[in-house]
């Protein structure tokens, strides 16, 4: 029961975040929304594991958290430098 309440709250939050991702207006709003959506997915997977009585799902959540972070930074880096950092090493701008 309590896991169900948590799941519903997470899904409602995810929907609101998706609306923000669709509305924009800037591309950074969208990246922020997608990054937050990823963290919510981690929570969703964790609570879902408890709801189904299979806490092993947490491993998936752990991996998802890491991939989400790397994905966000990669997209930002790509937008800023136009590549994934090979060129940036020679510029004076600091790394992300």
């Amino acid at each position: 029961m309590m896991f169900l309440v948590a799941i519903i709250a997470i899904v409602v939050t995810m929907l609101m975040i998706l609306v923000r991702a669709l509305l924009g207006p800037t591309v950074y709003d969208r990246i922020l929304a997608i990054n937050l959506f990823g963290t919510k997915t981690v929570l969703f997977v964790a609570v879902l594991g408890f709801l189904n009585g299979r806490p092993e799902f947490l491993d998936l959540g752990l991996i998802y958290a890491l991939i989400n972070f790397i994905g966000t930074v990669t997209v930002l880096k790509f937008m800023q430098y136009g590549d994934l950092g090979w060129e940036a090493a020679s510029k004076e701008k600091p790394d992300v």
Partner: peptide, 15 residues
Amino acid sequence: LAGGALFSVIGGIGM
């Protein structure tokens, strides 16, 4: 859990 759910939705509203 209920507190977490509440703050999560509040953050969504803020977004």
